[in-house]
């Protein structure tokens, strides 16, 4: 089963623990600026939105890479960057429509979410249900269940 990193925006409190777990896992320090997942605060809207790579099936970053440094991890389906091959040209950062692949000046390579090899640390550390790692073909189940329950109770028409 291929799994996906799933983000439930309404559950995010904006604490940034995910960013610390991510930067620690990949860089060995707590540094939100080096995290592959980012939480954006929109205080006037009372909303916090976590954002990261969605691992596109037909990944634009991978297609754009002139040296084939981006490859598919066959176990997780994650598009990963080979530091040995990456030349830091940043074309992938332009190709990605979502901005979730970024250049790291310290190493001269690009960085993106690699799903931690199938054990995403951001999910492990998240104190709320905002981040889950679930069946990629069933990401809508929780939402469907919620709405189905409302239908049962006759609430759907009211909400």
């Amino acid at each position: 089963m291929v799994k996906a990193l799933y983000m439930s925006i309404s559950d995010c409190t904006g604490c940034q623990q995910c960013e610390m777990a991510c930067s620690y896992e990949h860089e060995g320090v707590f540094n939100p600026a080096k995290s592959r997942i980012k939480v954006f605060n929109f205080p006037e809207e009372g909303r916090n939105v976590p954002y990261s790579c969605t691992q596109c099936a037909d990944a634009w970053c991978m297609q754009a890479c002139p040296v084939d440094a981006i490859y598919i991890n066959t176990k997780t389906g994650a598009k990963e960057v080979s530091d040995a091959l990456c030349v830091g040209c940043k074309v992938c950062t332009i190709a990605c429509p979502f901005g979730t692949i970024n250049y790291n000046h310290a190493t001269g390579k690009v960085i993106k979410c690699d799903l931690c090899g199938g054990d995403p640390k951001c999910v492990e550390i998240c104190p709320t249900p905002a981040l889950t790692y679930i069946d990629a073909e069933q990401t809508g189940m929780a939402k469907m269940r919620l709405w189905a329950k409302k239908t049962d109770a006759g609430q759907a028409a009211q909400s």
Partner: peptide, 13 residues
Amino acid sequence: LVSNAACFGCPIS
């Protein structure tokens, strides 16, 4: 009340 929110690094919120 609209929601709760967290300070940096806070699981309590």
